[in-house]
Write a protein that binds this DNA or RNA. Structure first.
Length: 895
DNA sequence: GGGCTGGAACAATTC
DNA sequence: TCGAATTGTTCCAGC
């Protein structure tokens, strides 16, 4: 494949994505990322897809996401990224790239040659890179920091698919996998070059816990290290092994050092002040977008047009999944793996095919079926953002987990399964599935920061067994991430009670020292339960859905000390202030303070004021505060600010969003999201983004609900009736995890302008469904939307950043006013336009429990209004762009 | 006896 | 540079 840019973007970080018109390939064929851009040899699917893509000459301008696909091919489902900066910001240029199918190269060359491996790479390499200010201070993989440099990465990283199983570091001295999920001939071969990709499989473990494979995560970073030993912990306490024997004090790791940060500590400290802000930058929406652009459909692709070697590689990739070796497991291979290549097939479990060896809980009525022959190796990587609903299907977390769950270390015994607020356990249900075959619900621990959802490097799901556990489950490993597989049975209405999942904490030092790992563990203690289900379609395709839970604080101390705002009775109010707002949450103290903050684009505080707190009303879980008057009483458009509860110097809650409306904007009252609270306090509560993106201060036009809809709402048909409206059980503590929530209202997204066509926002959906691209954020959809979007369980369930069909902003300036270029992180992670179907709004509205006024009906033909979303970086040093660039971008966005 | 919990000691890291 | 504060990890005890 060859790639050339005919129009080199003026911005170095522009990432271009091209989608193959090919039906099955929803291929984000190419992603050209500058300066680090390079062909990301990852994405096998892309690879083989490209095989079928002759020469694609694309003018990125209106690559309207889904619209790119034709009705018959709709790889729908995927989010079409357009021009984006590594930080997710849209590219302003519309470079034209020509893509020549790999097929012109001998397969061997394609796969084995490292020299020819990436034409993309060559091309990119010649591109001048942008020197980022304070780059060294970033840990953002997208930056050229030591930590994130290719040299420090390895295939072991589980950080992301592109960093782990797919990414071929060898080939990219300068590419950050985050930079360019480009298609590369080496895409698949990269797997081969990453023998450890299947890591866990090869690592029996030393973990004394019931999670033997967990140890593999760390262990892989020390290939030369004798099994059973682990890197020294910075903690002097780590003197003994689990059996009491002294730990080896020496390590074979070349990078071993007395300190946890052998790389000169490229990792920055994450503090209350900068954590969220920093994390924002880590996001490379472009990559995610590219990844999302892929389809899970692999059957056809795999069978056709894919070089044998490629297929083999892909199979290898599938090998990265292994089953936990249960004592006595009969179906396990000698290596303790079980028909890995068959894994995908297990997604469509058939009752008639039992695989007893998998059964951990024999008494359970459900037995894991024996894997069917290899079907599709291209299930979406764990860091792919998937929608929670697609077509008739909707994966919902009916009962959210408690916001706190103390994770256990390997050195400790289990701390039990994650519980629900009500005392039970989380419940997940798949709606719309009418088949008689059971499905497999996958569960893994995901991140809960501002970045796009991905497997959490420091936490793993821990399988809980015992007489108190009613749900069968078994574990598999996929790229260092443990996945718990739970049967979803028709007889149970495709509903599963998640009482078999605990959370294991891996030592920071173990993970941080791992090659390729760029995340830091310190204060990175929030996670989300991520559920996935893959539904095989009659046409051979697979629809993959994903739903992420509310954030769960896993730190013992944080859970006990940090204030947590779960809900707020008011999301927005006129700039005049004066409204009493009830906050509910945890750990409020008599001397808790509530501070409103507004920051400028450069991260500087524009305004900060302490709101009046009704001291008499403070309880440990509620606090009443008076909304302070905004600094400018004459704002003409909503202004989003943030506030937090502070219990002390470093004990602040996450930022919560609040929107000041122009004084004359009518307030639309919406239904309380929490009857109890409403009745009790007279104030309706809105769950709040627990995560917030403090630095964002989007200014949104009021009238564009339709131009800016809730992200995370995938194009689901109007099935309210079939859908549970906001589940009471799931709404008591709704957190807006989604960075998306902050979002990116994309004006006239390409999709809007796109010709009618199937725009299947979700994976491999049925083509034909008209979808509209939407900016997505409830809060941003409009000031009105901001009022309640957060109360939507849907909002929560549809994984914030996930589950959205983000159609990344087009590279075209005119069409990519996407979100927030200035905020590489935060909500900013993924500026995208969400595909949306007319019925979607209603559906979501229903899901939202009636709290989503922002979900206005919209249809593809309706005129859309451009919305400008201005989001700010939390800190100056987090910006990727200089003021000039920002100004230019913003001016471009502002329509 | 093992799993689950809550609490806290101890040490490293950060402020 | 030092002390305090914070955070991570391990250990203990009780149920």
């Amino acid at each position: 494949m060859s790639l050339s840019t005919e129009t080199c973007p003026s911005y170095s970080h522009v990432v271009l994505f091209f989608f193959s018109p090919d039906a099955y390939s929803y291929t984000p064929n190419v992603s050209l990322s500058l300066p680090l851009g390079m062909g990301n040899p990852c994405l096998a699917t892309q690879y083989h897809t490209l095989q079928n893509s002759p020469v694609i000459s694309v003018t990125s301008c209106h690559q309207t996401g889904y619209s790119l696909q034709n009705d018959n091919h709709a790889p729908s489902g995927y989010y079409l990224p357009h021009g984006l900066r590594p930080n997710g910001a849209p590219a302003l240029e519309s470079p034209r790239i020509e893509i020549t199918a790999y097929s012109q190269y001998p397969e061997d060359e394609v796969e084995e040659s490292s020299s020819e491996d990436n034409v993309i790479k060559r091309g990119v390499n010649s591109i001048v890179t942008l020197t980022l200010p304070n780059a060294e201070g970033y840990r953002d993989p997208s930056c050229l920091s030591p930590a994130s440099s290719v040299s420090s990465r390895s295939c072991n990283s589980e950080a992301s698919s592109y960093e782990s199983s797919f990414y071929n570091y060898d080939n990219s001295p300068q590419n950050s996998p985050w930079q360019s999920p480009c298609v590369s001939p080496r895409g698949s071969s990269s797997l081969l070059s990453c023998p450890l990709a299947s890591g866990p499989i090869a690592s029996p473990h030393h973990s004394p816990s019931t999670s033997p494979q967990i140890g593999a995560v760390a262990e892989e970073a020390w290939p030369a290290q004798p099994r059973g030993s682990r890197p020294d912990s910075p903690s002097g306490k780590r003197k003994y092994s689990f059996n009491g024997a002294p730990f080896r004090q020496t390590s074979c790791s070349p990078t071993q050092s007395p300190t946890p940060s052998p790389h000169g500590s490229p990792r920055v400290s994450v503090t209350d002040e900068n954590w969220l802000a920093n994390t924002n930058q880590y996001t490379n929406s472009a990559i995610v977008a590219a990844i999302n652009a892929l389809t899970t459909d692999g059957v056809v692709d795999m069978g056709e047009g894919i070089p044998i070697k490629t297929r083999k590689t892909m199979l290898d990739h599938s090998l990265s999944m292994s089953l936990k070796v249960e004592p006595g497991g009969e179906d396990l291979s000698p290596e303790g793996e079980l028909c890995h290549e068959d894994y995908p097939s297990r997604l469509g479990l058939k009752k008639e095919n039992y695989c007893g060896g998998f059964l951990d809980v024999p008494q359970h009525p459900y037995s894991w079926s024996k894997p069917k022959p290899y079907l599709s190796p291209s299930l979406p990587a764990l860091d792919w953002q998937l929608p929670s609903c697609s077509g008739p299907y909707n994966l919902q977390i009916e009962v959210q987990p408690k916001s706190h769950h103390r994770a256990h270390y390997e050195t400790e015994g289990s701390r039990g399964a994650v519980k629900a607020l009500s005392g039970g356990h989380p419940v997940v249900q798949l709606y719309g599935y009418m088949e008689s075959e059971p499905l497999t619900l996958q569960l893994f621990i995901g991140t809960a920061d501002d970045r796009l959802l991905r497997p959490h490097a420091f936490y793993q799901v821990h399988r809980i067994t015992g007489k108190t556990v009613s749900t069968a489950s078994h574990e598999v490993m996929q790229s260092n991430t443990k996945i718990l597989e739970i049967p979803l049975l028709p007889e149970n209405n495709m509903r599963a009670i998640i009482d078999c999942a605990g959370i294991l904490k891996l030592r920071n030092s173990d993970i941080e020292l791992r090659k390729g790992e760029t995340d830091i563990g310190r204060k990175n203690t929030r996670v989300r339960l991520v559920f996935r289900v893959h539904i095989n379609q009659a046409n051979g395709r697979t629809v993959s859905l994903q739903a992420a839970s509310n954030p769960i604080e896993c730190s013992q101390r944080s859970a006990q000390e940090l204030p947590l705002v779960e809900k707020q009775s008011v999301d927005s109010y006129p700039a005049t202030g004066g409204k009493m707002m009830l906050l509910s949450g945890l750990n409020f103290l008599p001397d808790s303070k509530v501070v409103f903050v507004e920051k400028a684009q450069d991260g500087h505080h524009l305004w900060e004021t302490e709101a009046k707190v009704d001291k008499d009303s403070i309880k440990c879980n509620t606090i009443v505060v008076e909304v302070p008057p905004y600094r400018n009483q004459r704002i003409s458009s909503p202004v989003q600010v943030n506030f937090y509860v502070c219990n002390g110097k470093r004990k602040r809650s996450q930022y919560q969003r609040f929107t000041f409306l122009p004084p004359n904007v009518p307030i639309i009252k919406t239904e309380p999201s929490d009857e109890y609270e409403s009745m009790r306090t007279g104030l309706s509560m809105h769950s709040k983004p627990y995560y917030n993106q403090p630095r964002l201060t989007p200014i949104m036009p009021v009238n564009d609900a339709d131009a800016c809809l809730v992200s995370g709402y995938s194009p689901c048909p109007p099935r309210h009736a079939a859908m549970p409206s906001s589940s009471p059980s799931s709404s008591p503590t709704l957190h807006d995890l989604s960075p998306m929530a902050y979002n990116k209202c994309l004006p006239n997204s390409p999709t809007h302008a796109a010709p009618p066509g199937p725009v299947a926002p979700t994976i491999q959906e049925n083509p034909g469904r008209p979808n509209l691209a939407h900016p997505a954020s409830p809060d941003h959809s409009s000031p009105l939307g901001m009022l309640h979007s957060q109360g939507s369980p849907n909002h929560l369930n549809s994984p914030g950043p996930h589950g959205y069909h983000h159609i990344y902003a087009n590279s075209s300036p005119s069409s990519s006013p996407v979100s927030h270029p200035s905020t590489p992180g935060g909500a900013a992670e993924s500026p995208f336009v969400q595909a949306y179907s007319p019925s979607h709004g209603a559906a979501n509205s229903a899901q939202a429990g009636g709290n989503s006024p922002s979900l206005l009906h919209e249809d593809s033909s309706s005129p859309t209004v451009s919305i400008t979303v201005k989001q700010e970086p939390q800190e100056l040093d987090q910006m990727y762009l200089d003021d000039g660039e920002l100004s230019e971008i913003l001016s471009t966005w502002i329509v």
